[in-house]
Amino acid sequence: MTYVAGRTLPLRVEIVRQFKRRRTMVMFGLLLALPWILVIAFKVGPQSNNPQGNSLRISDLATAGGLNFAAFALSVSASFLLVVAVALFCGDTVASEANWSSLRYLLAAPVPRDRLLRQKLIVALGYSAAAVISLPLMALAAGTLAFGWSDIQVPGTGETIPALDVLPRFGIVIGYALVSQLVVAALAFLLSTVTDSPLGAVGGAVGLWIVSTILQAVEALGTLREFLPTFWNTAWLDALAPELDFGGMAKGASISVTYAAILIAVAFRRFRRKDVVS
């Protein structure tokens, strides 16, 4: 018997299975093109007559240099575009197999259910991480080519941090962006194991995300809002402040990991007991 459960559905195979899909290509194309679209928008739009900028908003500082531009690109995409990308990769992964009926053949191959979910989750998270990382990196490249390499100017106070000092912090920013998207990933993944409709899983995750964003605008909820998964989404801005403050990011990461752990556990538990009838 040459069958070994631990060798089924190798990551390489799952990566190839997902990579050749059109939605993967389109999503990465969009994420990699967005920085260039923004560069063109800044170049075409009327130039500010005051290079220092009257107000020190992140959008006013976007053209100050590559690092500023990357921070800006991340700030405009983190709230929605990256959410959709992550929800797509994680929400589509199991539901689309069910939709194609290929899920039952994988399970009868047999790929053990826990292993199937694990491999699919790893690959989906990998694609999500690649999406989250590729956007700021491309923005950094595009911004550096378009606006030059210079020290970062901090939004708010306008202080300047040397570029080399800020590079590790940029790593923190990307790392936090990854962690904060973990909730979306886990939620989409759970929905993916529940429904046979990929659109339902992706849309459901994005929809719940939007509900959370709406709820957090209700100030009457007070500190309860801090426990909404979206509340700390912009906490990575603290990493670009002159005084590096991990407080908000720690809370955000804590919330994110908490939700993600439970949602993923529920996904595995449900899928184990599920009757696959698709």
């Binding site: 804590s254 919330i255 752990a261 556990a265």
Partner: peptide, 16 residues
């Protein structure tokens, strides 16, 4: 900040 993820991981382990 520390307790919640730890508790969540414990709950997750229990669920599994």
């Amino acid at each position: 900040t520390w307790a919640m993820p730890l508790a969540a991981v414990a709950v997750a382990a229990l669920l599994l």
